[in-house]
């Protein structure tokens, strides 16, 4: 299922995984898992599920994990604003300083700012990320969040759950479950960060 333009998405991002492997673009595209409509519908459903599960929007705050969790969180905020008519507070989290592999990786990640301009004390925090894989990013994000205050609940929303967890972590809201092999790479491309809108499955080369 190769098509023109697939490489636009790939070239726009150099990926490396939390488990320390540099996967800078060494994959060959195998499959397109989601297109623009697919992503939009998944976000829409997640937004509804968040409101349904929490019985409204009381105490809800959204926090996106850099980089691609941030535009996803913004979309969820926008969607919820459309059907619930409330503007949820939104923050963004950089988890670099909480990674458990800093001393073992060759590459040093650039640290970006964490911006949570509100108190998360007693709130229900919806953490948003693009892909749930080993669970190590989510683990780091939980630590980072707890350093900012004591939320009442933390829930996790991801666009793709690809399996292969290394920690006891699960997502509360999943856009799509994609069973993968460890030889495969999931590449999420969003308009805001990559200029295209799709999710690709790549084979490591």
């Amino acid at each position: 299922m190769l098509y023109r333009g697939m490489y636009d998405c790939l070239l726009s991002q150099a990926v490396f995984s939390l488990s320390g492997k540099v996967i800078a673009m060494e994959g060959t595209p195998k499959n397109r898992i989601m297109d623009e409509d697919g992503i939009r519908r998944a976000i829409s459903r997640i937004s509804h599920e968040i409101v349904e599960k929490n019985k409204g929007t009381d105490k809800l705050v959204l926090i996106g994990i850099r980089t691609r969790g941030v535009p996803l969180a913004e979309r969820i905020k926008k969607r919820i604003a459309e059907f619930e008519n409330v503007q949820l507070p939104i923050g963004l989290l950089d988890i670099t300083l909480y990674r458990d592999d800093l001393s073992t990786i060759d590459v040093q990640p650039v640290i970006h700012e964490t911006k949570v301009p509100f108190s998360i004390e007693g709130k229900t925090v919806i953490l948003v990320d693009d892909v749930l894989f080993t669970g190590r990013t989510a683990r780091a994000a939980l630590d980072a969040l707890i350093d900012l205050g004591r939320p009442q609940k933390i829930q996790l929303a991801v666009l793709i759950d690809r399996g292969h967890r290394e920690l006891p972590i699960r997502a509360d809201y999943v856009g799509k479950n994609v069973p993968t092999s460890s030889r495969e790479i999931i590449s999420v491309c969003l308009e805001e960060t990559d200029g295209t809108e799709e999710v690709l499955l790549l084979e490591k080369s």
């Binding site: 490396f16 300083l97 001393s103 060759d106 590459v107 040093q108 990640p109």
Partner: peptide, 17 residues
């Protein structure tokens, strides 16, 4: 803090964003 992180925060081959 930034300097200490950059010098001993691991990963000295490359910086990746």
């Amino acid at each position: 803090m930034a300097l200490i992180y950059l010098l001993i925060g691991g990963g000295t081959v490359n910086v990746v964003d």
